[in-house]
Amino acid sequence: MLPLRLLACLIALLSLPAAAADLVVVVNARSGVEHLSHDEVVNIFLGRYRQLPGGQLALPIDQPSALPERALFYRLLVNKDLPQINAYWARLVFSGKTQPPLQAANPDEVLARLRNERGAVAYIERDQVDARMRVVYELPLLP
């Protein structure tokens, strides 16, 4: 089954615009964080820790669900699709106290929050990165 699923993923990725394929995790430039490990990115975006390495409260931000970046991000990060991620959050939301990352209404809000909030962490297209943001983790490219 795995090869089939992999094949399906490959097809989905290929259908994406080539330009959108290069996602990076970025933080506010002022946050003082230079680099994040893959586990740190996972812990932050999936609710384990909400602190950046410098002690700064982390504020993860999700791209809107309608955009392909979000699905691609989680695919590349933990190899899960969106329904799985949604189910994960549903259990935490209904029984526990942990909250999912902030859901941005549009890509601009992501960018805006990156620029304005110190603890903001998000994933965006590499070409959308500007000076107020710092790339702390580069998601691996699609093989």
């Binding site: 999936l46 935490l92 526990g96 106290k97």
Partner: peptide, 14 residues
């Protein structure tokens, strides 16, 4: 797994 991963008492209790 989720409860332990997140360290969520509520979910664990549940």
């Amino acid at each position: 797994r989720i409860a332990c991963f997140v360290g969520d008492h509520s979910l664990a209790e549940e």
